[in-house]
Design a binder for these strands. Structure first.
Lengths: 213, 213
DNA sequence: ACCTGAACACCGTTCAAGT
DNA sequence: ACCTGAACACCGTTCAAGT
C-alpha cells in the first residue's frame, strides 16, 4: 500500500494505544510489533513517529502527567492545602496507570507536562515565602512520596497464603496474609496518613523558618 | 562438557554477577544470555538455578534488601530515632543500586529479606504503642518515601541545556539547568528534609492518639 | 512524508542429549 | 543434578522500495 493519502498514525494515536495496552496487560506486553498490530499497521511504521521505543514510553508517561490537575495552584489557597490537593491528584493519575510507574525512573527529562508540574509546585511554594532552595527540596520530596506510593504499593506484594509467614521467621507478620483482602484500602490509608504527616511536618518547619509576611 | 564434577554456578554467584551487570550497565543490559557469557557459561544453564528471569530479578532485589541495616530495632531506642536510622540505611542501599529500583514495583513478594524488613519496622512500632493498623500504614508510607526517593531522583532528569526552559512555558524554572550540577546534593537534601517532616508529623499524631505508658 | 516487507542481531525459554 | 547445542517464537531497529 505504501503511503496513504491521509496518515494512518499520529503520535497521539500511538500513545493512546500504548497506554491502553500497558494498562490492560502490563509493561512487558508492550512491544513495538504488538502495538503496531493493535493499530493495524506494520511494525516499522511506528518509527516514522518515534525514534525509539524509549521515546515512545517517555511520551506515554508524559500523557499520564497531563492528567494531573494543577488548577489548585492558581487559586491562592494556602500552600499546604494546594499541595494536598495536588498530591492527591498526582497519586490518582498514577494509580489509574500503575503499570507505567516503573518508567518514571527516568526523571522529568524533556517531558513538557512533567516540567509544567514541577514549575507549578515550585512557583506556589516560592510565592508562599519559601526560600528557593527549600522550595526545590519540597517539590522533590513530595514527588518522592507520591511516586513511591504508586510504585511500592505495600500490600500488593504480600502473598495470600499464610504458610509463607513462618512465625519463627517473622514474629509480627502473623496476619499479613489478610492484607491482600483490602490492599487498596491500606494503600489509600497509608498515603493519606503520610500526606498529612508530611504537611504537618512541613508546616512546623515553615513556622520556624519563614518570616511572617 | 556436560555436568562438571563441582557445579559451575550457584544462585548466589548468579545474583552477584547480575547485580554487578545492572549496576554497571543498567537494567536493559541484563539479558540471560549476556549474564551467562559473563559467567563463562552457556545461556540455558541459568535455568537450572532460576525458573525464569523474573525469579532471578526477584532474588537480586532481595539481595539488595539484605544490605539494609535492621539492628537499630533491637536497641529499644525511641521509635522516631530507629525509624530515621532505618530509613537512611534503606535509602543508602537503594542509592547504591539505583538501576534496580524500578523492579521494586513487584512488592515484597516472597523475598525473605523484604519480609524481614517489614516485620522489623512493624514490630518496633507496635512495641512503641502504635495500634496495629497505624503501624501497618506507617511501615508502608515510610517505604513509599524511601522507594520514591530512589526511583524519582528529582534532579537527575532535568536536562542540562538551558534552552529547554523557555521562560514563557515554565516561568519558575529559569535556573533548573543548574540542578544537574549538584543533583545528588539536592536529592540528599530533599530526602533529609522529607524524612524530618515525616517524623515530626508522625510524632504529632503519636502524641495525639497514643496514650502515655 | 509515511507506509511496507525483508533482513539483522538479539531476546527468553524449552528440550533432548550428555556425564 | 547440572551443563550443552539446537531450536522456537519473539524482540527493536534499519533500510531499500513504493506512492
Amino acid at each position: 500500500m505504501a503511503r496513504p493519502r491521509t496518515p494512518l498514525l499520529s503520535r497521539e494515536r500511538i500513545v493512546t494505544a500504548a497506554l491502553q495496552l500497558i494498562d490492560a496487560e502490563g509493561l512487558a506486553a508492550l512491544s513495538t510489533r504488538r502495538l503496531a498490530t493493535e493499530l493495524s499497521v506494520s511494525g516499522p511504521s511506528l518509527y516514522n513517529h518515534f525514534a525509539t521505543k524509549d521515546e515512545l514510553l517517555d511520551a506515554v508517561v508524559d500523557s499520564v502527567m497531563g492528567e494531573v490537575d494543577l488548577s489548585m495552584f492558581g487559586r491562592d489557597a494556602p500552600w499546604p492545602a494546594a499541595l494536598r490537593d495536588w498530591a492527591r491528584s498526582y497519586r490518582a493519575a498514577l494509580a489509574a496507570h500503575p503499570n507505567i510507574v516503573p518508567v518514571l525512573a527516568q526523571g522529568p527529562g524533556r517531558r513538557p507536562n512533567a516540567l509544567r508540574l514541577a514549575d507549578a509546585v515550585f512557583g506556589c511554594l516560592v510565592e508562599a515565602g519559601w526560600p528557593r532552595g527549600q522550595a526545590t527540596r519540597i517539590g522533590a520530596l513530595m514527588r518522592y512520596f507520591v511516586a513511591g506510593s504508586a510504585l511500592a504499593s505495600f500490600a500488593a506484594g504480600f502473598p495470600e497464603d499464610a504458610g509463607v509467614y513462618d512465625a519463627a521467621d517473622y514474629p509480627h507478620l502473623g496476619e499479613a496474609h489478610r492484607l491482600a483482602e483490602h490492599r487498596s484500602a491500606i494503600d489509600e490509608g497509608a498515603f493519606e496518613t503520610g500526606l498529612e504527616a508530611l504537611l504537618d511536618g512541613l508546616l512546623l518547619r515553615y513556622e520556624r523558618t519563614v518570616p511572617r509576611p
